[in-house]
């Protein structure tokens, strides 16, 4: 379980997250929605320990991410997929996927690369396994990014606006993979602007506004009268749907 309690984070004078409480249990797909600047990405960066939190507590399977000793255990349990892919440009797709298993989990290189190829095949990239990131399209890069996270066999997948840098066609190819993962029971925290997609795969929706979580509802309720009763949510949804 990922448990977030009373999380506060500010950058200088700007308060980005102001008292967030959220629990994500095994098997859930929680989408985090909200306007730009509402703190969604920062929330992910706090869970994986890239940002130091100012107050509150985040635990991943009871490992406290603000304690350096426990952070490495917490990180082993969660895999992050980034908005801008963040692949290692000097490594091929296979090498990108196999690096962390070899270095962190001490999997023998041959085995790690065989597993990496298998993962890449499962997302339709067996032909491109030996290509460098610069030779791949955006959608292909993000699929490698997803494989890289899955290679660590994480209990939780943290997805930080993974389709924001992609055009609609490439977005569709990445989302179909995520939909399969969700069906397969992968636990996900999904920060996104893809509302319709979030609706189709999420078990729960969390809505952030100006650093505060103003809704945390089962998906059905969020998109029903109950969610619409919240003015900020109604406003957000109507605006997003017009686009």
């Amino acid at each position: 379980m990922i448990s977030i309690a009373g999380l506060r984070k500010s950058f200088g004078a700007a308060i980005v997250l102001n008292g967030i409480d959220l629990e994500i249990r095994q098997g859930e797909v929680v989408s985090v929605l909200g306007s730009s600047g509402s703190g969604k990405s920062t929330l992910i960066r706090c869970i994986n320990g890239l940002e130091k939190i100012d107050a509150g507590k985040i635990t991943v399977d009871n490992f406290d991410v603000s304690k350096p000793r426990e952070l490495s255990e917490a990180r082993k349990r969660s895999g992050t997929v980034f908005q801008l892919f963040n692949l290692y440009p000097h490594m091929t797709a296979v090498q990108n996927v196999a690096l962390a298993p070899v270095e962190v989990l001490k999997v023998p290189r041959k085995q790690a690369e065989a597993e990496a190829r298998e993962l890449l095949r499962s997302v339709g990239l067996s032909e491109r396994a030996d290509a460098y990131p610069a030779q791949l399209s955006g959608g292909q890069r993000q699929r490698v990014g997803i494989c890289r996270a899955l290679a660590m066999k994480p209990s939780y997948l943290l997805l930080d606006e993974v389709t924001s840098a992609l055009d609609p066609e490439m977005t569709a190819e990445v989302l179909s993979i995520l939909a399969n993962l969700a069906k397969g029971g992968t636990t996900m925290v999904f920060v996104t602007h893809e509302i319709e997609f979030a609706r189709s795969i999420s078990t729960r929706i969390a809505f952030l506004d100006k650093g505060q979580m103003i809704a945390d509802l089962p998906t059905k309720e969020f998109f029903s009268d109950k969610g619409m009763a919240l003015p900020r949510v109604a406003q957000f949804l109507s605006k997003m749907r017009k686009d």
Binding site: N48, L50, R75, F82, N86, L99, A100, V104, R148, M152
Partner: peptide, 27 residues
């Protein structure tokens, strides 16, 4: 060397030394 890749290597649990050797040094 882009900070974003170093962040990726960190969240996957690589140590400073591993990041230096495997990610930063070759580039």
């Amino acid at each position: 060397v882009g900070r974003d890749q170093i962040e990726a290597a960190r969240v996957f649990g690589l140590t400073r030394w591993q990041i230096l050797r495997r990610v930063i040094a070759p580039q």
